[in-house]
Design a binder for these strands. Structure first.
Lengths: 191, 191
DNA sequence: CGAACTTGCGTCATCGGTGTTGCAAGTTGT
DNA sequence: ACAACTTGCAACACCGATGACGCAAGTTCG
Protein backbone atom coordinates (compact mmCIF):
# COMPACT_ATOMS: atom_id res chain seq x y z
CA UNK A 1 0.00 0.00 0.00
CA UNK A 2 1.48 3.39 -1.01
CA UNK A 3 1.71 6.34 1.33
CA UNK A 4 -0.79 8.14 -0.84
CA UNK A 5 -3.34 5.41 -0.62
CA UNK A 6 -2.90 5.08 3.12
CA UNK A 7 -3.42 8.82 3.67
CA UNK A 8 -6.44 8.92 1.42
CA UNK A 9 -7.99 5.85 2.97
CA UNK A 10 -7.44 7.41 6.37
CA UNK A 11 -9.42 10.46 5.27
CA UNK A 12 -12.14 8.31 3.86
CA UNK A 13 -12.44 6.30 7.05
CA UNK A 14 -12.63 9.47 9.08
CA UNK A 15 -15.56 10.61 6.96
CA UNK A 16 -17.24 7.25 7.44
CA UNK A 17 -16.92 7.51 11.22
CA UNK A 18 -18.29 11.05 11.15
CA UNK A 19 -21.32 9.87 9.20
CA UNK A 20 -21.89 6.87 11.46
CA UNK A 21 -21.78 9.06 14.55
CA UNK A 22 -24.12 11.63 13.02
CA UNK A 23 -26.50 8.88 11.96
CA UNK A 24 -26.56 7.52 15.51
CA UNK A 25 -27.27 10.99 16.89
CA UNK A 26 -30.09 11.66 14.44
CA UNK A 27 -31.68 8.21 14.29
CA UNK A 28 -31.70 7.77 18.05
CA UNK A 29 -33.91 10.86 18.23
CA UNK A 30 -35.97 10.00 15.15
CA UNK A 31 -35.66 6.51 13.63
CA UNK A 32 -37.52 7.71 10.53
CA UNK A 33 -35.15 10.57 9.78
CA UNK A 34 -34.15 11.01 6.14
CA UNK A 35 -30.69 10.61 4.63
CA UNK A 36 -30.77 14.37 4.09
CA UNK A 37 -31.05 15.02 7.84
CA UNK A 38 -28.27 12.55 8.57
CA UNK A 39 -26.02 14.16 5.99
CA UNK A 40 -26.75 17.59 7.40
CA UNK A 41 -25.90 16.45 10.91
CA UNK A 42 -22.64 14.99 9.59
CA UNK A 43 -21.83 18.24 7.83
CA UNK A 44 -21.62 16.63 4.40
CA UNK A 45 -23.74 16.50 1.27
CA UNK A 46 -26.31 13.78 0.88
CA UNK A 47 -24.52 12.44 -2.17
CA UNK A 48 -21.41 11.89 -0.08
CA UNK A 49 -23.35 9.64 2.28
CA UNK A 50 -24.58 7.64 -0.69
CA UNK A 51 -21.03 7.31 -1.98
CA UNK A 52 -19.97 5.66 1.29
CA UNK A 53 -23.10 3.61 1.83
CA UNK A 54 -24.89 2.20 -1.20
CA UNK A 55 -28.28 2.38 0.46
CA UNK A 56 -30.06 3.36 3.64
CA UNK A 57 -30.07 -0.26 4.75
CA UNK A 58 -26.35 -0.48 4.13
CA UNK A 59 -25.81 2.51 6.41
CA UNK A 60 -27.93 1.05 9.20
CA UNK A 61 -26.18 -2.29 8.76
CA UNK A 62 -22.81 -0.60 9.07
CA UNK A 63 -23.99 1.10 12.25
CA UNK A 64 -25.19 -2.22 13.64
CA UNK A 65 -21.91 -3.86 12.70
CA UNK A 66 -19.82 -1.20 14.34
CA UNK A 67 -21.92 -1.11 17.49
CA UNK A 68 -21.95 -4.88 17.71
CA UNK A 69 -18.15 -4.97 17.61
CA UNK A 70 -18.01 -2.46 20.46
CA UNK A 71 -20.66 -4.43 22.32
CA UNK A 72 -18.79 -7.72 22.09
CA UNK A 73 -15.54 -6.01 23.06
CA UNK A 74 -17.20 -4.43 26.10
CA UNK A 75 -18.37 -7.82 27.31
CA UNK A 76 -15.08 -9.48 26.54
CA UNK A 77 -13.11 -6.84 28.43
CA UNK A 78 -14.92 -7.79 31.63
CA UNK A 79 -13.76 -11.43 31.43
CA UNK A 80 -17.10 -12.69 32.76
CA UNK A 81 -15.91 -16.28 32.65
CA UNK A 82 -12.85 -15.85 34.82
CA UNK A 83 -14.05 -13.33 37.39
CA UNK A 84 -16.26 -13.77 40.45
CA UNK A 85 -19.91 -13.43 39.32
CA UNK A 86 -20.67 -10.28 41.29
CA UNK A 87 -17.58 -8.50 40.03
CA UNK A 88 -18.18 -9.68 36.50
CA UNK A 89 -21.77 -8.51 36.63
CA UNK A 90 -20.66 -5.06 37.64
CA UNK A 91 -17.87 -4.84 35.08
CA UNK A 92 -19.98 -6.09 32.19
CA UNK A 93 -22.72 -3.65 33.12
CA UNK A 94 -20.41 -0.65 33.30
CA UNK A 95 -18.63 -1.54 30.06
CA UNK A 96 -21.83 -2.17 28.13
CA UNK A 97 -23.36 1.03 29.43
CA UNK A 98 -20.40 3.01 28.14
CA UNK A 99 -21.12 1.69 24.64
CA UNK A 100 -24.90 1.81 24.82
CA UNK A 101 -25.00 5.44 25.92
CA UNK A 102 -23.37 6.47 22.65
CA UNK A 103 -24.77 3.77 20.35
CA UNK A 104 -28.27 3.16 21.63
CA UNK A 105 -29.98 3.11 18.26
CA UNK A 106 -27.38 0.99 16.51
CA UNK A 107 -27.33 -1.54 19.34
CA UNK A 108 -31.09 -1.96 19.18
CA UNK A 109 -30.68 -3.27 15.62
CA UNK A 110 -29.90 -6.82 16.67
CA UNK A 111 -31.64 -8.01 13.52
CA UNK A 112 -29.30 -7.02 10.74
CA UNK A 113 -29.02 -8.27 7.18
CA UNK A 114 -25.52 -9.26 8.24
CA UNK A 115 -25.94 -12.65 9.93
CA UNK A 116 -22.70 -12.04 11.84
CA UNK A 117 -24.43 -9.34 13.89
CA UNK A 118 -27.18 -11.70 14.95
CA UNK A 119 -24.61 -14.34 15.77
CA UNK A 120 -22.66 -12.04 18.07
CA UNK A 121 -25.80 -10.92 19.85
CA UNK A 122 -26.82 -14.53 20.36
CA UNK A 123 -23.37 -15.32 21.68
CA UNK A 124 -23.45 -12.44 24.15
CA UNK A 125 -26.87 -13.62 25.26
CA UNK A 126 -25.43 -17.05 25.91
CA UNK A 127 -22.60 -15.55 27.94
CA UNK A 128 -25.14 -13.57 29.90
CA UNK A 129 -27.03 -16.75 30.73
CA UNK A 130 -23.79 -18.44 31.74
CA UNK A 131 -22.91 -15.50 33.95
CA UNK A 132 -26.28 -15.73 35.64
CA UNK A 133 -25.91 -19.46 36.19
CA UNK A 134 -22.55 -18.79 37.78
CA UNK A 135 -24.16 -16.16 39.97
CA UNK A 136 -26.78 -18.66 41.06
CA UNK A 137 -24.12 -21.23 41.87
CA UNK A 138 -22.31 -18.61 43.94
CA UNK A 139 -25.49 -17.77 45.81
CA UNK A 140 -25.60 -14.24 44.44
CA UNK A 141 -28.68 -14.80 42.31
CA UNK A 142 -31.78 -16.58 43.56
CA UNK A 143 -32.03 -20.12 42.27
CA UNK A 144 -35.77 -19.94 41.67
CA UNK A 145 -35.84 -17.12 39.14
CA UNK A 146 -36.70 -17.86 35.52
CA UNK A 147 -33.44 -17.44 33.56
CA UNK A 148 -35.29 -15.87 30.66
CA UNK A 149 -37.03 -13.36 32.88
CA UNK A 150 -33.75 -12.54 34.62
CA UNK A 151 -32.01 -11.77 31.37
CA UNK A 152 -34.89 -9.68 30.11
CA UNK A 153 -35.01 -7.67 33.31
CA UNK A 154 -31.27 -7.12 33.09
CA UNK A 155 -31.48 -5.96 29.47
CA UNK A 156 -34.42 -3.68 30.29
CA UNK A 157 -32.54 -2.06 33.16
CA UNK A 158 -29.50 -1.50 30.96
CA UNK A 159 -31.71 0.06 28.31
CA UNK A 160 -33.29 2.32 30.88
CA UNK A 161 -30.04 3.30 32.55
CA UNK A 162 -28.54 4.18 29.18
CA UNK A 163 -31.26 6.79 28.73
CA UNK A 164 -30.09 8.62 31.84
CA UNK A 165 -28.56 11.97 31.19
CA UNK A 166 -26.88 12.22 34.57
CA UNK A 167 -23.99 10.29 36.00
CA UNK A 168 -21.13 8.31 34.52
CA UNK A 169 -21.23 4.66 33.55
CA UNK A 170 -19.81 3.48 36.88
CA UNK A 171 -22.40 5.30 38.95
CA UNK A 172 -25.18 4.04 36.73
CA UNK A 173 -23.83 0.50 36.87
CA UNK A 174 -23.70 0.58 40.66
CA UNK A 175 -27.30 1.66 40.92
CA UNK A 176 -28.36 -0.79 38.24
CA UNK A 177 -26.75 -3.84 39.84
CA UNK A 178 -28.08 -2.81 43.22
CA UNK A 179 -31.59 -2.56 41.83
CA UNK A 180 -31.25 -5.82 39.94
CA UNK A 181 -30.17 -7.80 42.97
CA UNK A 182 -31.92 -6.07 45.87
CA UNK A 183 -34.87 -4.44 44.14
CA UNK A 184 -36.37 -1.22 45.42
CA UNK A 185 -38.18 -2.58 48.47
CA UNK A 186 -37.14 -2.75 52.10
CA UNK A 187 -37.67 -6.48 52.35
CA UNK A 188 -40.25 -6.00 55.06
CA UNK A 189 -43.75 -7.32 54.67
CA UNK A 190 -42.82 -9.69 51.88
CA UNK A 191 -42.67 -13.45 52.01
CA UNK B 1 -81.31 10.91 17.94
CA UNK B 2 -83.50 8.63 15.76
CA UNK B 3 -83.32 4.85 15.88
CA UNK B 4 -81.98 4.88 12.34
CA UNK B 5 -79.16 7.24 13.17
CA UNK B 6 -78.26 5.26 16.26
CA UNK B 7 -78.07 2.00 14.33
CA UNK B 8 -75.94 3.53 11.60
CA UNK B 9 -73.62 5.20 14.03
CA UNK B 10 -73.28 1.91 15.83
CA UNK B 11 -72.12 0.28 12.61
CA UNK B 12 -69.68 3.06 11.95
CA UNK B 13 -68.21 2.85 15.42
CA UNK B 14 -67.80 -0.89 15.08
CA UNK B 15 -65.81 -0.33 11.91
CA UNK B 16 -63.68 2.24 13.68
CA UNK B 17 -62.91 -0.20 16.48
CA UNK B 18 -62.02 -2.91 13.98
CA UNK B 19 -59.59 -0.57 12.24
CA UNK B 20 -58.04 0.60 15.50
CA UNK B 21 -57.46 -2.97 16.64
CA UNK B 22 -55.99 -3.97 13.29
CA UNK B 23 -53.74 -0.92 13.32
CA UNK B 24 -52.46 -1.86 16.77
CA UNK B 25 -51.78 -5.41 15.63
CA UNK B 26 -49.92 -4.31 12.51
CA UNK B 27 -48.06 -1.29 13.87
CA UNK B 28 -46.86 -3.10 16.99
CA UNK B 29 -45.07 -5.51 14.69
CA UNK B 30 -43.94 -2.89 12.19
CA UNK B 31 -44.30 0.80 13.11
CA UNK B 32 -43.59 1.75 9.50
CA UNK B 33 -46.39 -0.33 8.03
CA UNK B 34 -48.47 1.32 5.32
CA UNK B 35 -52.16 2.24 5.45
CA UNK B 36 -52.67 -0.50 2.89
CA UNK B 37 -51.36 -3.16 5.27
CA UNK B 38 -53.50 -1.81 8.10
CA UNK B 39 -56.59 -1.81 5.91
CA UNK B 40 -55.87 -5.35 4.79
CA UNK B 41 -55.51 -6.51 8.40
CA UNK B 42 -58.81 -4.85 9.23
CA UNK B 43 -60.51 -6.54 6.29
CA UNK B 44 -61.54 -3.27 4.67
CA UNK B 45 -60.43 -1.20 1.69
CA UNK B 46 -57.78 1.44 2.15
CA UNK B 47 -60.24 4.17 1.16
CA UNK B 48 -62.49 3.18 4.03
CA UNK B 49 -59.70 3.80 6.48
CA UNK B 50 -59.19 7.24 4.98
CA UNK B 51 -62.89 7.96 5.29
CA UNK B 52 -62.75 7.34 9.04
CA UNK B 53 -59.38 8.95 9.65
CA UNK B 54 -58.42 12.01 7.64
CA UNK B 55 -54.73 11.16 7.72
CA UNK B 56 -52.22 8.68 9.04
CA UNK B 57 -51.48 10.96 11.97
CA UNK B 58 -55.17 11.18 12.74
CA UNK B 59 -55.33 7.39 12.95
CA UNK B 60 -52.34 7.15 15.25
CA UNK B 61 -53.74 9.96 17.36
CA UNK B 62 -57.03 8.13 17.66
CA UNK B 63 -55.16 5.01 18.75
CA UNK B 64 -53.25 7.00 21.35
CA UNK B 65 -56.46 8.60 22.56
CA UNK B 66 -58.26 5.29 22.91
CA UNK B 67 -55.33 3.58 24.62
CA UNK B 68 -54.84 6.51 26.95
CA UNK B 69 -58.47 6.31 28.06
CA UNK B 70 -58.03 2.61 28.83
CA UNK B 71 -54.75 3.36 30.59
CA UNK B 72 -56.26 5.99 32.84
CA UNK B 73 -59.24 3.76 33.57
CA UNK B 74 -56.94 0.87 34.47
CA UNK B 75 -55.10 3.02 37.00
CA UNK B 76 -58.31 4.52 38.36
CA UNK B 77 -59.91 1.11 38.86
CA UNK B 78 -57.14 0.20 41.30
CA UNK B 79 -57.93 3.17 43.59
CA UNK B 80 -54.23 3.73 44.32
CA UNK B 81 -55.04 6.58 46.67
CA UNK B 82 -57.35 4.69 48.98
CA UNK B 83 -55.72 1.28 49.12
CA UNK B 84 -52.69 0.08 51.07
CA UNK B 85 -49.58 0.78 48.93
CA UNK B 86 -48.59 -2.81 48.40
CA UNK B 87 -52.08 -3.83 47.32
CA UNK B 88 -52.42 -0.77 45.12
CA UNK B 89 -49.07 -1.47 43.49
CA UNK B 90 -50.19 -4.96 42.60
CA UNK B 91 -53.62 -3.91 41.36
CA UNK B 92 -52.33 -1.06 39.26
CA UNK B 93 -49.70 -3.32 37.75
CA UNK B 94 -52.15 -6.05 36.84
CA UNK B 95 -54.71 -3.64 35.41
CA UNK B 96 -52.17 -1.71 33.36
CA UNK B 97 -50.65 -4.94 32.05
CA UNK B 98 -54.04 -6.07 30.81
CA UNK B 99 -54.26 -2.91 28.71
CA UNK B 100 -50.64 -2.77 27.64
CA UNK B 101 -50.58 -6.33 26.36
CA UNK B 102 -53.22 -5.42 23.78
CA UNK B 103 -52.30 -1.77 23.15
CA UNK B 104 -48.53 -1.70 23.41
CA UNK B 105 -47.90 0.41 20.36
CA UNK B 106 -50.66 2.93 21.02
CA UNK B 107 -49.59 3.35 24.65
CA UNK B 108 -46.06 4.12 23.64
CA UNK B 109 -47.34 7.19 21.79
CA UNK B 110 -47.41 9.40 24.85
CA UNK B 111 -46.55 12.33 22.63
CA UNK B 112 -49.69 12.94 20.64
CA UNK B 113 -50.87 15.99 18.75
CA UNK B 114 -53.78 15.88 21.16
CA UNK B 115 -52.54 17.68 24.28
CA UNK B 116 -55.11 15.80 26.34
CA UNK B 117 -53.15 12.58 25.85
CA UNK B 118 -49.97 14.13 27.18
CA UNK B 119 -51.93 15.56 30.10
CA UNK B 120 -53.34 12.19 31.10
CA UNK B 121 -49.93 10.53 30.88
CA UNK B 122 -48.45 13.27 33.05
CA UNK B 123 -51.28 12.84 35.52
CA UNK B 124 -50.77 9.08 35.72
CA UNK B 125 -47.08 9.71 36.25
CA UNK B 126 -47.90 11.99 39.14
CA UNK B 127 -50.16 9.34 40.67
CA UNK B 128 -47.35 6.83 40.26
CA UNK B 129 -45.00 9.11 42.18
CA UNK B 130 -47.63 9.60 44.87
CA UNK B 131 -48.10 5.85 45.14
CA UNK B 132 -44.37 5.39 45.56
CA UNK B 133 -44.20 8.07 48.23
CA UNK B 134 -47.00 6.29 50.05
CA UNK B 135 -45.10 3.04 49.73
CA UNK B 136 -42.03 4.68 51.20
CA UNK B 137 -44.06 6.04 54.10
CA UNK B 138 -45.44 2.56 54.71
CA UNK B 139 -41.96 1.10 54.71
CA UNK B 140 -42.60 -0.97 51.60
CA UNK B 141 -40.25 1.00 49.40
CA UNK B 142 -36.75 2.02 50.46
CA UNK B 143 -36.54 5.67 51.44
CA UNK B 144 -33.21 6.22 49.77
CA UNK B 145 -34.16 5.40 46.20
CA UNK B 146 -34.33 8.17 43.63
CA UNK B 147 -38.05 8.64 42.85
CA UNK B 148 -37.29 9.22 39.18
CA UNK B 149 -35.22 6.06 38.92
CA UNK B 150 -37.90 4.09 40.75
CA UNK B 151 -40.60 5.18 38.34
CA UNK B 152 -38.45 4.47 35.31
CA UNK B 153 -37.57 1.01 36.56
CA UNK B 154 -41.25 0.33 37.18
CA UNK B 155 -42.22 1.49 33.69
CA UNK B 156 -39.41 -0.55 32.15
CA UNK B 157 -40.51 -3.70 33.95
CA UNK B 158 -44.10 -3.17 32.85
CA UNK B 159 -42.93 -2.70 29.29
CA UNK B 160 -40.91 -5.88 29.49
CA UNK B 161 -43.60 -7.94 31.16
CA UNK B 162 -46.11 -6.84 28.52
CA UNK B 163 -43.91 -8.46 25.87
CA UNK B 164 -44.28 -11.84 27.53
CA UNK B 165 -46.27 -14.33 25.56
CA UNK B 166 -46.90 -16.62 28.49
CA UNK B 167 -49.03 -16.17 31.55
CA UNK B 168 -51.99 -13.98 32.41
CA UNK B 169 -51.82 -10.45 33.74
CA UNK B 170 -52.06 -11.53 37.38
CA UNK B 171 -49.18 -13.97 37.14
CA UNK B 172 -47.06 -11.40 35.35
CA UNK B 173 -47.95 -8.74 37.88
CA UNK B 174 -46.98 -10.99 40.77
CA UNK B 175 -43.57 -11.71 39.30
CA UNK B 176 -43.10 -8.06 38.32
CA UNK B 177 -43.86 -6.65 41.78
CA UNK B 178 -41.71 -9.31 43.38
CA UNK B 179 -38.80 -8.39 41.13
CA UNK B 180 -39.37 -4.68 41.65
CA UNK B 181 -39.30 -4.93 45.44
CA UNK B 182 -36.94 -7.84 46.11
CA UNK B 183 -34.82 -7.87 43.00
CA UNK B 184 -33.33 -11.08 41.69
CA UNK B 185 -30.59 -11.53 44.26
CA UNK B 186 -30.47 -13.61 47.43
CA UNK B 187 -29.58 -10.67 49.61
CA UNK B 188 -26.35 -12.38 50.63
CA UNK B 189 -23.02 -10.71 50.10
CA UNK B 190 -24.52 -7.26 49.60
CA UNK B 191 -24.34 -4.30 51.95
C1' DC C 1 -89.96 0.07 -3.01
C1' DG C 2 -87.35 4.28 -1.79
C1' DA C 3 -84.17 6.91 1.37
C1' DA C 4 -80.04 7.23 3.79
C1' DC C 5 -75.86 5.57 4.23
C1' DT C 6 -71.60 2.87 3.75
C1' DT C 7 -68.37 0.13 1.28
C1' DG C 8 -65.25 -1.46 -2.40
C1' DC C 9 -62.97 -0.46 -6.51
C1' DG C 10 -60.55 2.03 -9.83
C1' DT C 11 -58.38 6.25 -10.81
C1' DC C 12 -55.79 10.25 -10.28
C1' DA C 13 -52.50 13.80 -8.60
C1' DT C 14 -49.07 14.77 -5.40
C1' DC C 15 -45.24 14.46 -2.40
C1' DG C 16 -41.08 13.10 -0.17
C1' DG C 17 -37.32 10.02 0.06
C1' DT C 18 -34.03 7.34 -2.55
C1' DG C 19 -30.41 6.43 -5.53
C1' DT C 20 -27.60 7.88 -9.72
C1' DT C 21 -24.85 10.77 -12.60
C1' DG C 22 -21.90 14.52 -14.51
C1' DC C 23 -19.09 18.22 -13.59
C1' DA C 24 -16.56 21.97 -11.45
C1' DA C 25 -13.84 23.04 -7.48
C1' DG C 26 -11.08 21.84 -3.78
C1' DT C 27 -7.47 19.22 -1.15
C1' DT C 28 -3.46 16.29 -0.48
C1' DG C 29 0.77 14.12 -1.51
C1' DT C 30 4.67 13.75 -4.97
C1' DA D 1 2.79 21.98 -11.23
C1' DC D 2 0.80 17.46 -11.64
C1' DA D 3 -1.89 13.44 -10.47
C1' DA D 4 -5.08 11.15 -7.69
C1' DC D 5 -8.80 11.63 -5.22
C1' DT D 6 -12.83 13.57 -2.83
C1' DT D 7 -16.47 16.76 -2.21
C1' DG D 8 -20.49 19.74 -3.13
C1' DC D 9 -23.96 20.85 -6.16
C1' DA D 10 -27.53 20.46 -9.43
C1' DA D 11 -30.34 17.62 -11.85
C1' DC D 12 -32.79 13.51 -12.91
C1' DA D 13 -35.65 9.26 -12.82
C1' DC D 14 -37.97 6.28 -9.82
C1' DC D 15 -40.89 4.52 -6.43
C1' DG D 16 -44.09 3.86 -2.73
C1' DA D 17 -47.23 6.02 0.29
C1' DT D 18 -50.72 9.31 0.79
C1' DG D 19 -54.98 11.42 0.16
C1' DA D 20 -59.04 12.74 -2.79
C1' DC D 21 -62.42 11.58 -6.15
C1' DG D 22 -66.68 9.53 -8.37
C1' DC D 23 -69.46 5.71 -9.05
C1' DA D 24 -71.76 1.28 -8.74
C1' DA D 25 -73.31 -2.09 -5.45
C1' DG D 26 -74.68 -3.32 -1.07
C1' DT D 27 -77.07 -2.83 3.56
C1' DT D 28 -80.54 -1.49 6.71
C1' DC D 29 -84.09 1.04 7.80
C1' DG D 30 -89.18 2.96 7.29
Amino acid sequence: MSETTRALRSDAERTVRTILEAAERVLSKNPAASMEQIAEAAGVARTTVHRRFASRDALVDAMAGWATKQFAAAVEAAHPETTPPLVALYQVTANVLRVKIDWGFAMSRALSSDPEVGRVHAEVEARCDRLFRGAQAAGVLRADVDPDWARRVYYALIHEAAQSHDGDADTLATRLVDTLLRGLGTGKGLA
